[in-house]
Measured scan of single mutants.
Amino acid sequence: MTSCHIAEEHIQKVAIFGGTHGNELTGVFLVKHWLENGAEIQRTGLEVKPFITNPRAVKKCTRYIDCDLNRIFDLENLGKKMSEDLPYEVRRAQEINHLFGPKDSEDSYDIIFDLHNTTSNMGCTLILEDSRNNFLIQMFHYIKTSLAPLPCYVYLIEHPSLKYATTRSIAKYPVGIEVGPQPQGVLRADILDQMRKMIKHALDFIHHFNEGKEFPPCAIEVYKIIEKVDYPRDENGEIAAIIHPNLQDQDWKPLHPGDPMFLTLDGKTIPLGGDCTVYPVFVNEAAYYEKKEAFAKTTKLTLNAKSIRCCLH
């Protein structure tokens, strides 16, 4: 018999989150649709729960009410004593943790798909938090293969000092899905179709896995975050240069030392320094102006996964 890495157990509980950011409308629209008619997301033997994560922000069509829901799922915020004085999103995070967690427990949901849009030209993107997770690498390989020839990129946010504390991190297997470009507060049919297909293929993978299909060893190309880059700023902290036209919409493309990065209003080009080629992502993302992030630098690498098969009882 072929030796293989056996994944822990079959997958039982899956959640699909929309509206973690209330103005990213593809996930909101799909989740609302699936709450009314969820036939397309159901798979035999699998509990799939669509869920609106930040209903107040969705109602106002804004990213958040008090603070970013997708950055506060750490033990400090989840452990705060519940009171009306807490920011709305912290209270909501505790409610979500109660419903789908608790985080880092045996009772937490197996998989959470968190649906997002970006204003950046990132196409279909899967966000991975753990480079050693054979199950998710296999799932992402399946999704990428199923979507081809449509490109699907994998963004690895594993980093020693950049801690995200994402909404989906309460699950055993957290999956971020990011599709763009799409303006905030807008629905685009092409973007919706791409996100819908990503979810379909992900659920198909889980179904095949649960039925005992063995997935042979595989490898995927990923883009691992190195650092986030702020806009150049003046002495008052105001933005002093904008994304250069040569960099705009060039997510995932190589940016070499000396290539144009920013452009000042008086026409001066600010190039990339250093001696390493990087791959920019979230270029000129609207939501990241407040976070002082013009783009993120990534490096390209390959992740390998062992063969996996479900432990059938």
Rank of each mutant, 00 (worst) to 15 (best):
G185E: 03
V31S: 03
Q42L: 09
A165C: 08
P55Y: 09
H159I: 06
E211G: 15
G101L: 05
G273N: 10
N284E: 03
E89Q: 05
N133Y: 04
T302L: 13
A294L: 01
A287H: 15
C152A: 10
A287G: 14
I226F: 11
I112C: 09
N117Q: 02
K103I: 07
K300A: 05
V283W: 01
V58W: 06
F135I: 05
I225C: 06
I16R: 02
V278E: 03
N121L: 01
G267K: 08
W252V: 05
G79S: 09
L115I: 09
A219L: 15
R91A: 07
L75G: 14
K291C: 10
E36N: 15
S120W: 02
C4A: 07
L303Y: 03
P174F: 11
E178Y: 14
L126G: 03
S3W: 13
E290G: 15
K32S: 11
S108P: 13
Y155V: 11
H256M: 10
L136H: 03
H5Y: 12
S307E: 15
V28H: 12
S3I: 09
G18K: 02
K144A: 13
E9V: 10
Y231N: 01
Y109L: 05
K213P: 03
K103N: 10
L255C: 15
P174K: 12
Q250G: 14
A240D: 10
T145D: 12
A93P: 05
G267T: 04
E235F: 13
N133H: 05
L303R: 02
I199F: 02
F73Y: 11
D249I: 02
K253E: 12
K224W: 03
I111Q: 02
I111G: 01
E89K: 04
P151T: 14
L192W: 06
S120R: 03
V48P: 07
L272G: 04
R56Y: 14
G22W: 13
V283F: 02
I143K: 01
V281G: 04
E221G: 04
S131N: 06
D259F: 04
H201C: 15
P260W: 03
L25R: 08
T269W: 05
I6D: 10
L203T: 01
K200G: 12
T298M: 06
L75K: 08
G79T: 13
I137Y: 01
N77P: 10
L312G: 12
L247V: 08
T26F: 01
P232K: 02
G79L: 12
I52Y: 04
L150A: 14
Q12D: 10
K49M: 15
Q194L: 15
P160N: 09
I111Y: 02
G38Y: 13
L99N: 08
R63V: 05
I226Q: 08
P280I: 02
D204C: 01
D68R: 07
F29P: 00
K297E: 03
S108V: 13
Y164W: 12
R309M: 11
D85G: 07
D130H: 05
S307L: 06
S307K: 09
K224C: 04
K228Y: 15
E36P: 04
D230Q: 09
K224Q: 14
F113H: 01
P245K: 04
Y88K: 07
D275Q: 15
I6M: 15
F100Q: 05
P260T: 04
T302I: 09
L35C: 06
I239A: 07
T145K: 15
S131R: 12
G185W: 03
K81A: 09
I11T: 05
H98A: 12
C4H: 08
V175K: 01
V278R: 03
H21G: 06
E47A: 07
Y64K: 13
P151A: 08
F282Y: 12
F140E: 00
C124N: 10
K268G: 09
Q12L: 07
V278G: 01
V48C: 09
N133R: 03
D230R: 12
V154H: 01
Y88F: 07
M195D: 00
C67K: 13
N97K: 08
P232E: 03
L30E: 03
V186L: 15
I72A: 10
T264Y: 05
K32N: 10
I137M: 07
H201Y: 14
L25M: 10
F17P: 02
I72Y: 08
S307V: 05
H313A: 13
I52C: 09
F113N: 02
L75C: 12
D275K: 13
A219W: 15
V229L: 05
G267V: 03
H207L: 15
E178L: 12
G185A: 07
F51I: 12
Y64A: 08
F29Q: 12
V281W: 01
T118C: 06
H244T: 03
H244Y: 02
I191N: 03
K224F: 03
E290V: 08
A202E: 00
I225M: 07
L126V: 04
I137R: 01
D85S: 10
Y223H: 15
G267F: 06
E84W: 15
N133C: 15
N284H: 03
I65A: 13
C310S: 14
K300T: 07
R168S: 10
M122W: 01
G38C: 13
N70M: 14
A219M: 09
I112E: 01
E178H: 13
G19D: 00
A165I: 13
E158K: 05
L301T: 11
S146V: 09
L128V: 01
